[in-house]
Design a protein around this nucleic acid. Structure first.
Length: 285
DNA sequence: CTAGGATCCTGTCAGC
DNA sequence: TGCTGACAGGATCCTA
């Protein structure tokens, strides 16, 4: 679930709390959630937080990097006596007592605790050498981020999948990094392209719009703070839906399209729940 | 190489 | 109430 904007928001938020802090102890509650020896992490200071696509990279002293992928339901929650920061899959674990039954890894730092929670256990923390990050199989296979990609490059990557529905193609991290189910739907709506359209049938104009849509929708989400504690809580303190801050179609089925008033509908494309405006995004051109 | 489908895991929700 | 199946903001592995 956490896509590029969510991970970037976590990176920025966490940086203020754990950069330059020393990790004193690592507690692993679920073995499959932590890959590599935890001893390489303990007693190391955090030097920097980076991101590639949906992967968070935490560089430590001694040439060690922790790669964290939240997949569908991962969250990172920092707690200290004075501060609290949470991001990722938004649930009440942002506020409740931790560790809880969904806590997979707990990092004790000099200045607080960092919890890696993950309901479905698809996410992971992986310990690698900093020099090995670029050659890691997952990182290596990633395409560029939408902001770093030219039209020609995007088109070339898209056209490797001419017969696939366009939605499946843009969810492929080897085509463009960071796009997940939310921003796929939002980008396609922005471009006025139906998600079932064959990738090979898109015009240059539509491809241009799609790239622009990915950039704009993800930037808007980063600007609004992604799925962090702050956006999960409404002004009155009750639980809110951060998607409503920027999503035009995602989880808005039954509501009128912002552009034309037609009812947004939910369909299934490439095995994923998909949200469209049937008027703005025609299947037939 | 790509395409399509199953799979990892847990929780929630709709329908009977 | 209890059961069952579908589904979920992701990515990989397998087979064709």
């Amino acid at each position: 679930m956490p896509e590029l904007p969510e991970v970037e928001t976590i990176r920025r938020g966490l940086e203020g709390f754990i950069k330059n802090a020393k990790i004193t102890k690592v507690k692993i509650f679920c073995d499959k959630s932590f890959i590599g020896p935890k001893e390489l992490v303990e007693s190391k200071k955090v030097l920097a937080l980076r991101r590639r696509g949906k992967a968070l990279l935490i560089d430590l002293e001694g040439g060690i990097t922790m790669m964290i992928h939240l997949r569908m339901t991962g969250q990172l929650i920092f707690r200290s006596d004075n501060d609290s920061f949470a991001g990722g899959h938004p649930t009440d674990s942002f506020f409740t007592e931790l560790p809880n039954n969904q806590t997979r890894v707990e990092f004790e730092l000099e200045n607080g605790k960092l919890f890696f929670n993950d309901q479905r256990k698809f996410g992971f923390v992986k310990v690698i050498e900093t020099t090995e990050v670029e050659s890691d199989k997952f990182i290596k296979s990633l395409a560029k981020e939408p902001w770093d990609m030219t039209f020609d490059e995007f088109k070339k990557n898209l056209m490797r999948h001419k017969t696939q529905p366009i939605k499946a193609t843009i969810l492929d991290q080897k085509v463009v990094a960071g796009v997940g189910n939310i921003y796929a739907d939002e980008s396609l709506f922005y471009a006025g392209v139906h998600p079932k359209r064959e990738t090979g049938s898109l015009t240059d104009d539509e491809i241009e719009k799609l790239l622009e849509g990915a950039r704009k929708t993800m930037q808007a989400s980063i600007d609004s703070g992604g799925s962090t504690m702050k956006t999960y809580v409404k002004a009155d303190g009750t639980k809110g839906d951060y998607l409503r801050l920027f999503a035009k179609v995602f989880r808005r089925e039954g509501e009128p399209c912002e552009k034309c008033g037609t009812e947004i509908v939910k369909i299934r494309v490439a095995g994923r729940g998909t949200h469209i405006c049937p008027r703005c995004q025609k299947e037939q051109r």
